[in-house]
């Protein structure tokens, strides 16, 4: 996964987890240790896709405008990078059996990755995050005893 895709997913998780407020690029950037400049470029793409809207002025920032139960990780990743494996030769008929066999392996792995990303929605991610937080809290409670 490319850096922009990863950042877009993290930003959307942050915004979808806080549907009642707008969040600045500085706040998200600080949490995930990335520059506000890079984040702004990512959010521009997400805005064009209708997933976020920017709110100007004091207390402004970005808010989530998608449907967290419908938007999948694959939907987000495909805004930033190619998600299909393609033959790299200008003329695929030039590929020999060794190259096709290797292509088949890469395609198999890619198909599984796409199926995984395509089946996980932002809502599912938020649920998994809550689960992790609860487990972390339980561990902390046990450690404190």
């Amino acid at each position: 996964m490319q850096k922009s895709s990863r950042l877009a997913i993290l930003a959307l998780i942050e915004l979808a987890a806080n549907p009642d407020r707008s969040i600045s690029t500085a706040e998200i950037g600080e949490k995930y240790r990335v520059s506000a400049h890079h984040l702004a470029k990512v959010l521009l793409t997400l805005g064009r896709a209708g997933l976020v809207q920017s709110i100007r002025g004091v207390g402004g920032g970005y808010s989530f405008t998608g449907n967290a139960r419908r938007v999948t990780l694959h939907d987000i990743i495909s805004l930033f990078e190619e998600t299909e494996v393609k033959c790299r030769l200008a003329d695929p008929s030039e590929a020999n059996p060794e190259e096709w066999a290797l292509f088949d392996v890469a395609k198999e792995i890619n198909d599984i990755a796409n199926a995984t990303y395509g089946s996980i929605t932002l809502a599912t991610m938020l649920m998994q995050i809550e689960k992790r937080k609860r487990a972390q809290e339980r561990r902390a409670e046990v450690a404190a005893k």
């Binding site: 139960r69 199926a115 395509g118 996980i120 599912t124 649920m127 998994q128 689960k131």
Partner: peptide, 18 residues
């Protein structure tokens, strides 16, 4: 089926993982 996104998404939303 890995291309059955409706069903895959449903089981994922119930917490199932690979």
């Amino acid at each position: 089926r890995r291309d059955d996104r409706l069903l895959m998404s449903f089981f994922r939303s119930e917490g199932m993982v690979a």
